[in-house]
Write a protein that binds this DNA or RNA. Structure first.
Lengths: 229, 229
DNA sequence: TCGTTAACCTAACGGCGTCAACCTAGGGAG
DNA sequence: CTCCCTAGGTTGACGCCGTTAGGTTAACGA
């Protein structure tokens, strides 16, 4: 418990809500796990009695969800401001920004995206972020580098980015070869896969022929650009 | 509580361990969430007093981990028996088998793969499964359809499959367009991406040129095969 | 028959989320 | 200035949880 908070003025009852959220956020960042976020601990840190939490949150889950949602506005901003003259490169930037965001806020990301109960569905901020990714994919489709419904493609790419982030967050003890190289590889694979995969729908030659075609493809493109998707 | 269990014979104390695991597994499958798996509930269902659980498990987490690990032997078997004359198709089969397994055992998969504490790292059975996937990738590399270290490629593909499974499990309320089509799309994207992505390392032409090359690639391959990667 | 001991139970502790009931300070009405 | 009403909390308790210490019972060998 920090200190006994002075009672708010008459119209300012909602002040406590913000202070509770701040206290909970601090607890989450300090301990690195949501198990430390007990109603009692949050109330004590805010300098208030335990049941006072229920003046502003229906239950513990609502508090946890609210505090985790606070950082998600940042994600929409991060993804939205990924710009590049080339739509394919822009999409890659979006993917890397998404993964970086998840790794920067592992607890919040895990609570909101890796547990079934909390949030009753994908958070709205994440849906906005998904909208941006759909736009980026649509630009790729219009540029002729991808083919298919942008929504489905974006969903698949989102799934790939989520898989990378989720594994890195949930399995920190795994002997990852190199974190950043891994992220780059996954973003690259997803991007090129989204470009090539749907074109091959239904058609699938034997590996020998596929390998030859890939070699020819590789030989055709000699241009070098610094950034990768 | 079901019934008062009759005490085991003198050398058969370990019998209770199996009965506790069975009771816990039933609870998990019936309720669909690990929150129902309290030490008291498991003991009651096994017809035994609560502290008796601690005769065979150090704490609740060890019990939860043990019961979740029980289904994972199946995964190694499922992935290992994915065969196909074509290595690229075989890899696709492995990916789909992995995702299907995760969706068939959502609680166990989430507990072991989507929470940081439980298990102290990736379960051994999952590592064995990962070994099979590395083998499948290596075959693709040797066939010339992929390029790079098989371990890293397999890790990236594992991440993609995990992302698909994890999203489907953790966000059941999301309006997924079509579950099976989504899985197919992701497996296809990952496969072709792993084939094409590493070849493009460092090289990245503008989208216009990339689109043209992709069109040429598509035109070259007219062969149709029923199964897709 | 009896003692040993493996197998299990009883009782309890502290912490948790949550609720019903109570208090209290501070602003408006008279 | 006084009173009172209500927004903004607090006190105390309930039931459930994981976990522990110490007691009890029954199957076997001698």
């Amino acid at each position: 418990m920090t200190e006994k908070r002075v009672r708010a003025r008459r119209g300012d009852g909602a002040l406590l809500r913000e202070e509770l959220l701040r206290a909970a956020e601090e607890l989450l960042d300090e301990t690195g796990t949501e198990e430390a976020l007990t109603v009692r601990a949050v109330a004590a840190r805010a300098g208030v009695s335990t049941p006072s939490v229920y003046l502003h949150f229906a239950d513990k889950e609502e508090l946890l969800e609210a505090v985790c949602l606070r950082v998600w506005d940042e994600l929409g901003r991060l993804v939205a401001e990924c710009r590049d003259p080339d739509p394919f490169l822009r999409l890659g930037r979006c993917g890397r920004a998404y993964i970086r965001f998840a790794l920067d806020h592992p607890v919040q990301y895990r609570v909101l995206m890796m547990t079934p109960s909390a949030g009753e569905g994908v958070p709205p901020a994440a849906q906005a972020c998904f909208g941006y990714m759909v736009d980026a994919v649509r630009a790729c489709v219009e540029a002729g580098v991808m083919r298919g419904e942008p929504e489905r493609l974006a969903l698949a790419l989102w799934s790939a980015a989520h898989g990378c982030a989720a594994l890195l967050i949930a399995q920190p003890s795994f002997p990852w070869p190199d974190r950043d190289a891994m992220i780059d590889l996954i973003v690259r694979i997803s991007g090129f896969g989204a470009a090539l995969g749907p074109r091959m729908a239904g058609a699938l030659p034997p590996s020998r022929e596929l390998a030859a075609a890939l070699d020819a493809f590789e030989a055709r493109l000699g241009g070098q650009l610094p950034e990768r998707p």
